[in-house]
Design a protein around this nucleic acid. Structure first.
Lengths: 155, 155
DNA sequence: GGCCCAATTGCGAGCTGCTTGCGACAGGCT
DNA sequence: AGCCTGTCGCAAGCAGCTCGCAATTGGGCC
C-alpha cells in the first residue's frame, strides 16, 4: 500500500499528532490503525460506540479489525485521551476526555442529553462529605425520562 | 414433585403472598419458580445478580432454569415489585423497589455504597428545571472512587 | 538503505450476560 | 376431570467484548 503523506483533509491533524506524540513518548508506535482511529474520534460526534468508530476507520483502512479498535481505545483511555461510558443497556460510548460532561439518558426513547459537569457539583460535594466518595461524573449515565416522553406519558 | 404446603421457614411468606396476589390479579399464575424467586429476593442481600438469585432458587428447586429467572425478573419489574440497575461492567443487579436508594460504585475496588435518595434531591430538581428531565435515581449507578481507594491512591 | 526486534495487528475462537423459539407441562377455572 | 393458556425447561442464538497466536511492521541503529 502506498503510504500517501496526508490523504485526509480532516482539519484535526494537529490534535491527532499531539496525541501520537504522547503515544510515542510512551514507547508506543504510530500505526495506520492508531492514526485513523484518532481521526475518527476527532471527527465523530461524541458518544460514538466502538462499532461506529470501527466503521469510520474502515472507510479508509478496511482491514482494521474490531479487536484492534478495542485495543487502541483501551490504550487511549489509559493515556487519558478518551473516556468511555456505559449507558444502561447496549454498547459503551467513547468520547474525548476534554469537554467534561455527564449524560442524561432517557429510558423510554433512548435520547442522550449532555449535561454540564456543573450540574453534578452539589451531588459530588455531598458524596465527598458524607461518604468520602469521589464521583467521576463523566463516567456514568443518569437515567430517567426526557421531557418529551414525560409529557407524552409514554412507557 | 410433592407440593409440600410451606417447606421454607423464611419469615417472608406474607410479603411473598402479597406479591403473588398482584401476579394473580394480572391473570398470572403462581408457580414454584415464581414463588422461590420471590423468596430469594426477600432473603438475599440487595444487589443480587440474576445468576446469584438463580443459585439461591436452585438450592430448593434445582430444575429452575436461568432463562426462567430472567423472564420472572422481567415480569416482577413490570409489576413494579423490583428494579434493576446496571453498574459499569458486569451483570445487572436486582433489588426490591421498596427502600428506594441510589448506588455509589467504586471503579477501583468494586464496592457498592447505598446512598439515600435524598442525596440526589438537588440534582433531580436541577435536571427537571433545566432539561425537563425526570431522573430515576434508583436505576443507575454513580461511579467514582471510594474513600479507601482514594486514600490509598490505588489504580 | 538494510537489519533486527519488540510492538502491533488480523483473525478466529471464546466468554459473559442476556434473549428467543419451541414443544412439553401444569395452574386454575369450570 | 378436562380444557385452555400461561409458564417452563432447554438449547440455540446474539451482542459486546476479550484473548491467544502467528504474521506483520514501525522505527532505532548501523
Amino acid at each position: 500500500m502506498t503510504p500517501s503523506p496526508t490523504p485526509e483533509p480532516s482539519g484535526h491533524e494537529h490534535q491527532v499528532e499531539e496525541v501520537l506524540e504522547l503515544v510515542r513518548a510512551r514507547g508506543g508506535r504510530v500505526t495506520t490503525a492508531r492514526r485513523q482511529l484518532l481521526e475518527a474520534l476527532f471527527e465523530a460526534p461524541p458518544h460514538a460506540t466502538a462499532e461506529e468508530l470501527a466503521g469510520a476507520v474502515q472507510v479508509r483502512a478496511p482491514d482494521v479489525h474490531l479487536s484492534t479498535i478495542y485495543r487502541n481505545l483501551d490504550e487511549l483511555e489509559r493515556l487519558g485521551v478518551i473516556v468511555h461510558t456505559h449507558f444502561g443497556h447496549g454498547p459503551a460510548s467513547y468520547h474525548l476526555a476534554s469537554s467534561p460532561h455527564g449524560h442524561l439518558v432517557c429510558e423510554t426513547c433512548g435520547v442522550t442529553i449532555e449535561a454540564p459537569e456543573e450540574l453534578f457539583a452539589e451531588l459530588t460535594a455531598r458524596a465527598k462529605d458524607r461518604f468520602g466518595f469521589v464521583i467521576d461524573s463523566r463516567h456514568f449515565a443518569v437515567v430517567g425520562r426526557c421531557a418529551a416522553c414525560t409529557a407524552a406519558g409514554r412507557e
